[in-house]
């Protein structure tokens, strides 16, 4: 809640990224995804290191979502290679994919919460379907709800929440597996500027705790606020990659 109070004067200076030993988490080599003749992602070569915060920006249709889908293995590359934590995703067997997905958290523009479940139940669902015991679920859900500042709203249904709270619930669900990587695809697309600011701050905090974050967005406010690596896409290609950037097209 403290963040909201300071919204009028957002701190625009972030501590610089410490230069630790860099361990690659994601490697793309000439990664290409075509839908028929349409090239959604074309020849992308790129390395993302552990602990990084990466903003993936570009106008609608630039290929951000397709890149996210390749990362979550919802789609398979047409050509090229994609490694996550040293494993080439194309080589994962079907039975391994669920276990891979437990190691990455994903957040979407439309939240994807179940309307008939409370905040607590929505977050718990991610653990239930993976066979975690009830006591362990309670412990982990409470911890993550505390992190996203939703403990007070735990018994509420999504319809009773603000957009920002819904997205925080979705983030809590994405984090409940303690993933190494959090991918957020337009998480602020349905949010007002205040909620946007709040969500970006939360993502920043999550990154500070060690989780690698990829934020795909075309929201200038969010990118300028975070002041981290910015990768700009256009027509499926990377046209700029700045270490600590602002949103420019």
């Amino acid at each position: 809640m403290q963040e909201i109070l300071t919204v009028g004067s957002p701190k625009l200076t972030r501590p610089a990224v410490e230069s630790k030993v860099k361990v690659p988490l994601i490697e793309m080599k000439s990664l290409t995804k075509k839908y028929g003749n349409r090239v959604a992602v074309g020849e992308v070569t790129l390395v993302i290191y552990e602990g990084e915060f990466v903003c993936l920006v570009g106008q609608s249709g630039a290929g951000k979502t397709t890149l996210v889908k390749l990362l979550t293995k919802q789609e398979s590359p047409s050509t090229g290679h994609l490694f996550v934590a040293g494993r080439e995703l194309a080589e994962l067997r079907d039975s391994e994919v669920p276990y891979y997905r437990r190691k990455i958290g994903v957040v979407f523009q439309d939240f994807k919460l179940l309307p008939q479940k409370t905040v607590f139940e929505n977050v718990a669902f991610a653990l239930e379907v993976c066979g975690v015991s009830a006591t362990e679920i309670k412990r982990r859900v409470e911890k993550v709800l505390d992190l996203v500042n939703l403990t007070r709203r735990r018994a509420n249904y999504p319809a009773e929440l603000s957009g920002g709270e819904r997205q925080r619930t979705a983030i809590a669900r994405a984090l409940v597996h303690s993933p190494k990587l959090l991918i957020a695809d337009e998480p602020t697309g349905n949010l007002d500027p205040v909620s946007t600011w709040e969500i970006v701050e939360l993502l920043y905090r999550i990154n500070q705790k060690g989780t690698t974050v990829i934020l795909a967005t075309h929201n200038r406010q969010a990118v300028d606020q975070i002041q981290r690596r910015v990768i700009l896409m256009k027509s499926g290609k990377i046209i700029s990659d700045q270490k600590s950037g602002k949103y420019v097209i």
């Binding site: 979550t72 079907d94 437990r102 994903v106 994807k112 991610a126 993976c130």
Partner: peptide, 17 residues
């Protein structure tokens, strides 16, 4: 289908779904 989609991206196995 929404529930199935969510189950899939939070890592539920096909058998569970």
């Amino acid at each position: 289908s929404d529930e199935i989609e969510i189950m899939r991206f939070v890592g539920a196995s096909n058998a569970f779904i």
